[in-house]
Design a protein around this nucleic acid. Structure first.
Lengths: 337, 337
DNA sequence: ATGAAAGCGCTAACAA
DNA sequence: TTGTTAGCGCTTTCAT
C-alpha cells in the first residue's frame, strides 16, 4: 500500500548534498547558499518529492493539521463556518481534521488527548457547551485552541462569537418600528449562552421602547422546527395573540411559518415572522424570511487566524471577539393591520 | 506545546515488560498471555497512555485516518454524505481528514500524493469529475479509494451512486399518471453523468408512456437556482406551456417555484413542480416539494464500508454500487386542469 | 554553509 | 509467549 517513496535521502543523493541540507531547504532555513538551494529544489522537482508529514511531525515539527470539533455536520450552520475555516487554511497549507462529538459521548478526555498528542497543532471548537474535561486537558497541555460561537467562558479564553444580544435587539426594534406592540418570542435551547443573549436582546429592546415584557408571549423552544411550530401554535391561540413572532433561529422560524399557515393565517399580512441566523434557505422559503445574519463564514475565518497565531505563539494572551450581526430585511414582515 | 507524553516505553516500565509487548497489547496481537495483557492494560490506564498515531503510521502501521475529498462543504448535500461517513468511521475508530478541491486548483497531483503518502489509509471522493491525474496516482500507488455519487468510470472502479435514471423515470411517470401531457424539464449541468442519467430517465418515461419527447420542453440548466428560474421562465412563456416542470435538482426546482410565482401562477394548481435530491429544505418550502430522494447518508455509509474493506485488502475486486432512489410525494403536484 | 548523528514513538521481523 | 533490534522519514542539535 505504502510504496517506497521519494525521501529527503533520495533528493540529497540526486542533488549531491547531505540530507540535512535538503531538510533545511524544505523548511526554508536561512543557512543555505542560494546555489545549493536551487540544486536541491531542482532535484525535488525531478524526483517529485513530497514531504511526509507524519515523519516531520514525529521528529518535532508541526503536523500542519488543525482539528475541528463539531457536534454534527449536515447542517448549513456548520457548513458556513467550515467554509471560512477552509479558506483560511488553504492560505497557510494546513489540513483539516474533522471530529464530531456525536461519536465520543463516552471518553471525551481520551479523545482530546488523542488530538493533542501529535495529530493536530491546534483545535477549533464549535461546540455550544464544552465539557470541563476538555479545558483541563487543553489548558494544562498548553494546547492552542479557539472557541467558535460559544457563550464564552471569560474574556481571556480565545473565542469568536456573534453579537447575539444586538442582533435580537435590532430585530425586535425593527418590528416595534413597524408598529407591532405584541411580539411573540420563541427562545432557543436556554442552556446555551446565545439563546439567553437573544432573549435578553428581545426583552431589552421591548423595554427600551416602553413596551411591556409579557412572559405570556415568550415560548421556551429548543432551536428545532417542531418546537417553533408548537410555540407559534400556542402563541396564536392566546386570547390576545401577537401580531409578530420572532424566533431565535431560522429553523424554528420555519416551524412558526408552518403553524401560521396551519391556522389559515398569512405571512406577513396577518402575522410577521423574523428568524435568526440567515441560513441559505431563509431566502428560499415563501415568503423570504426576514432574519438576523450571523457572520458564520467570517467567524470561521477569524477563529482560524487566531488559532494559527496561537500555534506560532501559544503564550499570546487570549481574547474574546464578538463579530457584528446584521438584520436582513426580506418579505416576512409588515405593519400590523 | 507537545509535552513529554506517556509512551509505550513508560508503560512497559510500569508494567515490567518489554515495550514490544506493550505494542502487541495495543495492537491486539494474539501472542500475549492474558495475565500479561491485564498487567499492561492496567499500566496504560494508570499512566493515561494514548497511542501516537503519527509514530504508529510512520513505523508502517495504519494511520487510522481516511481522507474525504469534496468540492465544497456548506451545502446540505455534502453534509448528509458526511453524516453517513462519520457514523461508519465512529464504529471503527477512524478519523476523518477533510480536503476541499477548491483550494488546490493548481497542483492536484501533488495534493493527492500528499494524501497517499502517510496522511491517510484511504480516500473517499465526492467529486463529480475526477481528474485523470488523481486516478493515475491512486491506481499506480495501489491506494484504496471509493468514488461517491460519481457518474462512474467503469464497473471495476469502486464507486457508490444513486439510481438517477430510475429516479427521474419514476418522477416523470408520476406526473404522467397525474394526467400531465406536457412536462417541462430543467436539466442539470450536462457534463455530469447524473445530469445525463436524469434526462434519460425523463425521456425514457415519456416514451414508455407513448408521449412525445419534445426538445422544446427541455431547458439546459446547471443545477443552480438562477438557471431554474430562467428555465421555468422560458418554458412558461412558450405558446403551449407545460403543465408541470421537473427540475434536475431541488435547488433549481426552487428557482422554478420562484419563476412560477413571478408569473402569477400557483403551485400546484396551475403548475406542478418536482425536484430531485430531497435536501432538507425541500420539505420546508411552500408548498412542500415533491422530489426524488437520493440516499445520501447511505451512500456515505456504504462507500465507507467498502473503503474500509479495501484498506484491509487492497486487492479486492472493485465494483459499482447503485443505491435506489425514492419518489417523495409532497404537495407541489396535482392533476392539470 | 554544510554534514553527521541522535532521536521522535512506534511496528515488525527475528531471536530466544 | 516474550524480548531485541532495525528502521519509518524527518527535525535538530552539534560539529566542522
Amino acid at each position: 500500500m505504502k510504496l517506497d517513496n521519494v525521501t529527503i535521502i533520495d533528493v540529497a543523493r540526486e542533488a549531491g548534498v547531505s540530507y540535512s541540507t535538503v531538510s533545511r531547504v524544505v523548511n526554508n532555513n536561512q543557512h543555505v547558499k542560494a546555489e545549493t538551494r536551487e540544486k536541491v529544489l531542482n532535484a525535488m522537482m525531478r524526483l517529485g518529492y513530497v514531504v511526509n508529514q507524519q515523519a516531520r511531525s514525529l521528529a518535532g515539527g508541526r503536523s500542519q493539521v488543525i482539528g475541528l470539533l463539531v457536534p454534527d455536520v449536515g447542517n448549513a450552520y456548520i457548513g458556513e463556518i467550515i467554509r471560512g475555516i477552509d479558506e483560511e487554511l488553504a492560505i497557510c497549507q494546513y489540513e483539516l481534521m474533522l471530529y464530531t462529538t456525536r461519536r465520543r459521548k463516552t471518553k471525551e478526555s481520551t479523545f482530546v488527548t488523542t488530538i493533542v498528542r501529535g495529530m493536530a497543532d491546534g483545535l477549533l471548537l464549535v461546540v455550544p457547551r464544552v465539557s470541563v474535561t476538555y479545558f483541563e486537558t487543553l489548558n494544562q497541555q498548553h494546547f492552542p485552541y479557539v472557541l467558535i460561537d460559544h457563550q464564552g467562558i471569560d474574556n481571556v479564553t480565545p473565542s469568536v462569537a456573534a453579537s447575539n444580544w444586538q442582533g435580537a435587539y435590532d430585530a425586535t426594534s425593527y418590528l416595534v418600528g413597524l408598529g407591532h406592540r405584541r411580539i411573540g418570542f420563541i427562545t432557543g435551547y436556554m442552556e446555551l449562552g446565545c439563546a439567553i443573549d437573544r432573549l435578553a436582546g428581545y426583552r431589552d429592546a421591548l423595554i427600551d421602547h416602553h413596551l411591556d415584557y409579557d412572559p405570556e408571549l415568550v415560548y421556551e423552544g429548543d432551536f428545532f422546527q417542531p418546537d417553533g411550530f408548537a410555540g407559534a401554535s400556542k402563541l396564536l391561540s392566546l386570547p390576545r395573540p401577537p401580531t409578530a413572532i420572532f424566533a431565535s433561529n431560522d429553523v424554528s422560524a420555519f416551524g412558526v411559518m408552518e403553524a401560521v399557515r396551519h391556522y389559515g393565517l398569512r405571512i406577513p399580512e396577518d402575522i410577521s415572522v423574523v428568524g435568526f441566523d440567515n441560513i441559505p434557505q431563509a431566502s428560499h422559503v415563501y415568503p423570504p424570511l426576514t432574519t438576523v445574519q450571523q457572520p458564520l463564514e467570517e467567524m470561521g475565518r477569524v477563529a482560524t487566524q487566531i488559532l494559527l497565531k496561537r500555534i506560532e505563539n501559544p503564550d499570546l494572551p487570549g481574547e474574546r471577539i464578538v463579530l457584528p450581526t446584521q438584520l436582513i430585511i426580506r418579505e416576512s414582515c409588515q405593519s400590523p393591520r
